[in-house]
Amino acid sequence: MTGTPRKPAAFRIDGEGVVVVPAGEAPPAHARIVVEPEVDGAADDTAPLPVPLPKRRGPRWGRLLWTGLGGLVSLGIGLAVDRLIRDLFERADWLGWLGLALAALVAVGAVGLVVREVAGILRVERIDRLRAEAEAAAAADDDARAGKVVRDLVALYADRPETAAGRAAIAGHLREVIDGRDLVGLAEAEVLAPLDAAARRLVSDAAKRVSVVTAVSPRAIVDVIFVLVAVLGLVRRLADLYGGRPGLVGFVRLTRHVVGHLAVTGGMAVGDGLVQQIVGHGLAARLSARLGEGVVNGLLTARVGLAAIDVCRPLPFASLPRPGVSDVMGGILSRAEKGEG
Results as ranks from 00 to 15, higher is better:
6 R>V: 01
10 A>P: 11
19 V>G: 02
23 A>P: 09
24 G>A: 03
28 P>D: 06
29 A>M: 05
30 H>Y: 00
38 E>I: 14
44 D>S: 12
50 P>A: 03
58 G>C: 08
62 G>T: 08
70 G>H: 15
71 G>F: 10
71 G>K: 00
77 I>K: 12
80 A>E: 10
85 I>S: 01
89 F>P: 07
93 D>N: 08
101 A>Q: 11
102 L>K: 01
103 A>K: 13
110 A>Q: 12
126 R>F: 07
129 R>Y: 12
131 R>A: 05
133 E>R: 14
134 A>K: 15
137 A>I: 02
137 A>C: 06
141 D>G: 10
144 A>Q: 07
144 A>H: 12
148 K>G: 07
151 R>K: 01
152 D>A: 05
153 L>G: 04
156 L>F: 01
157 Y>K: 01
161 P>A: 04
163 T>G: 00
166 G>F: 02
167 R>I: 15
169 A>F: 00
178 I>Q: 15
180 G>R: 13
181 R>E: 00
181 R>H: 13
183 L>M: 04
185 G>D: 05
186 L>V: 02
191 V>A: 03
192 L>K: 07
194 P>S: 13
200 R>D: 05
203 V>C: 10
207 A>E: 02
209 R>P: 01
216 V>K: 05
227 V>S: 11
232 L>Q: 12
242 Y>H: 07
246 P>C: 04
246 P>D: 09
249 V>T: 08
252 V>L: 14
255 T>H: 08
261 H>D: 13
265 T>E: 11
265 T>H: 09
268 M>I: 14
270 V>R: 08
271 G>R: 02
275 V>P: 03
277 Q>Y: 07
279 V>L: 14
286 R>Q: 11
286 R>A: 08
286 R>N: 06
288 S>A: 07
302 A>Y: 12
305 G>Y: 14
315 L>I: 04
321 P>G: 15
325 V>K: 15
333 L>V: 08
334 S>H: 03
337 E>H: 08
339 G>I: 04
341 G>Q: 10
